[in-house]
Design a protein around this nucleic acid. Sequence first.
DNA 1: CACGACTATCTAATCGATTAGATGGCAGGA
DNA 2: TCCTGCCATCTAATCGATTAGATAGTCGTG
Lengths: 331, 331
Amino acid sequence: MTKRADKPITLADVARRAGTSTAVVSYVINNGPRPVAAATRERVLAAAAELRYRPNRIARALRSRTTGVVGLVLPDASNPYFGALARHIEQALEKRDRLTLVGNAGYSADRQRHLTERFLAAQVDGLVIVAADGGGDVAAQAQAAGVPAVYVHHGHPGGHAQVVAADNQAAVHEAIGHLRRHGHRSLAFLTGPSDEGPVGVRRAAWAAAVTGDPDAVLLRCDYSRGAADALTRHLVAEGAMPRALITATDEHAIGVLSGAWACGLPVPDRLALISLDGTPESAHTAPALSVTEQPLRAMAEQAVELLFGDISAALAAHAPLVVRRSCGCAA
Amino acid sequence: MTKRADKPITLADVARRAGTSTAVVSYVINNGPRPVAAATRERVLAAAAELRYRPNRIARALRSRTTGVVGLVLPDASNPYFGALARHIEQALEKRDRLTLVGNAGYSADRQRHLTERFLAAQVDGLVIVAADGGGDVAAQAQAAGVPAVYVHHGHPGGHAQVVAADNQAAVHEAIGHLRRHGHRSLAFLTGPSDEGPVGVRRAAWAAAVTGDPDAVLLRCDYSRGAADALTRHLVAEGAMPRALITATDEHAIGVLSGAWACGLPVPDRLALISLDGTPESAHTAPALSVTEQPLRAMAEQAVELLFGDISAALAAHAPLVVRRSCGCAA
DNA sequence: CACGACTATCTAATCGATTAGATGGCAGGA
DNA sequence: TCCTGCCATCTAATCGATTAGATAGTCGTG
């Protein structure tokens, strides 16, 4: 990266121009902590404007020990669920005048730890962690350094950091209830390879609700459209495709839709489908997905409030059932 | 945000523990600029490890005038195209040991400018700008402050910042050629409300290729699935739906697919479709979209290389045609 | 007219890491 | 033995903003 050419304007430059000390300039810029005479204030403001002075937040951060920057650890921003969540978190932080440092940790505990370490070195004021299955307790790592941290979407079992998540159990019950009202008695469930995190909660809620049903099938594949697509084609070819399915994520649901289309399996006529994420994606698939909609915005806002200590505990937000076409309801 | 409780370990603490001056500790931590005796180096390293010393990058930044942080200005991270691009950019920066500050400017020139201002105050070492239609020339704003900046996806007309974009014109030609080989003579084009940026290039390339064809229809709607969905339903209801369509973005294509499904219009039989983005989304729609695939990763890497001065000009990257189902080709 | 009580400003220490210049010690050559 | 060089290390200035403590003016009152 090319070196910056001209030296930037400093507080001292403005002070010189306005004929005051650096202290009064600082008082003017920050409206305090001491008052400044109106006339002087004018001169300072004018000088700052003329020189196009821009306060150096790094210097301020060094002195005040707070950077106004919050770190956001994500699994993968290109997954629309996490992308949307990230966007809402960034917005909630922006509203509080904080900047957001992001990092994608993928699904690796190591990279998660490494990223957190770098954020801590950068002196972030706080950390929002969107954890994937099986990471370490990075919030503890941050808290050991005196930096507040909260989890969103997925907490660390045994850790004592706050966690913001939707009420997944209620969501699953709504989905199951709805499909049963459509007359389905046997409900399959498609989830990821492990049972950690909110996805595990979802699976457990399903399992509890279908105990006693010998036909209740548990399917698993990676969290990707491609994997769900392939699995669907395979099941259809084997004649083993269930008639009603709940998917743990939209990625799964979209992959199933794609596989079903490729096999000529009509949805919802031959396959009723409800997904448990409800990202904005789900409204415009073919057919449109019925979902329980994770309140991403509310979750993001709660996480930030928690981080700032504005609230002391997160409420499990309700994930309402949004009925569209894939469950079998009419348009 | 709660204040941090215990005072952090500083270089001076390590020096005291190791029985040396702060200078040697610094030399050890940074491997230079002066050599340190092996025995001393050991002692310093040991002391640092015992105290769990973590260098304060803010202090380092103040002194060295470089923060190791790059700002990334996005329109909207929850749009999967931008989300995926953001992810690749973050990764390319990470590879060079830089942290990424993100901000979503929406589609507002004002918020774009505001965000840039904040990034500059935070002393970013550089700026990667993914601009939406109609923003101001924020790269110029950065360069005036001596901070290098590059545009990705969309440059600013008249600005003299570097721009990384795919070869959209070639992509459009490939798409048109492919649909013509399917026997379509009349090709419609769906784009956004304005003709700025790469989308404008795409539209212009289409317009040039279909001059003389009185049936070539230009359609416009907002960059959202919902808008494209609604437009499609409307056109089908009016009997005005074209038989072959190129969409400027995947968002448009997905909306069209969704609308077509809802109207019972079969794709590709009654509507052949090619989209010009080719995000990962497009592989798992129903039916799978044929696209010209924007080389997001290559674009992200070029942008970062450009920012660091590793290359002096961007090559318009090729956006290959990926044939799937929506154009009418068989699986 | 002088003194306390303010008000408006200035001076200078501070945050933590970097690094040029100063210093001390030891080896080898004259 | 003394000097030159070199190596390892130390001292202290520096980056830019913040802010407590010191210092000038100003006003009112006894």
